Computed example of a mutant assay.
Amino acid sequence: MIDQIQNVGSLTKVSGLGSITTDATSSTTTTVGSTPGSMTGVSFASVLGDMANSTVNNLKQAEVASFEGITGKANTREVVDAVLAAEQSLQTAIALRDKIVSAYLEITKMQI
Rank of each mutant, 00 (worst) to 15 (best):
P36H: 03
M110Q: 08
K109F: 02
V64L: 11
M51Y: 14
S46P: 00
D81H: 05
V79L: 06
N57Q: 15
G16D: 05
G18H: 07
D81C: 05
E106L: 09
V83G: 06
M110N: 12
I70F: 14
G9I: 09
T31W: 09
T31A: 06
L84W: 12
S10V: 10
S27E: 15
I70E: 11
S54N: 13
S43Q: 11
V56I: 05
S15V: 04
T29I: 06
V79Y: 03
D3H: 08
G49D: 03
S66H: 07
I100H: 11
G18R: 12
K99W: 08
A45Y: 11
K99A: 09
G33N: 11
S89C: 02
I112E: 10
K13E: 04
G37A: 08
E63P: 02
Q111D: 06
S27R: 15
F44C: 05
N75R: 01
L90K: 15
F67T: 04
G18T: 06
E68N: 02
N53Q: 12
S38V: 08
G37K: 11
I100G: 07
A45L: 10
A95W: 00
T92W: 04
V56K: 12
T28S: 14
Q61H: 04
V80C: 00
Q111L: 07
V83N: 12
T92Y: 09
I2A: 10
V83C: 03
K109Y: 01
I2N: 08
L96G: 04
G33C: 07
T35G: 00
E78M: 01
V32T: 07
A52D: 06
M1F: 02
S26E: 07
A65S: 15
K99I: 01
A65N: 13
F44D: 07
Q88M: 03
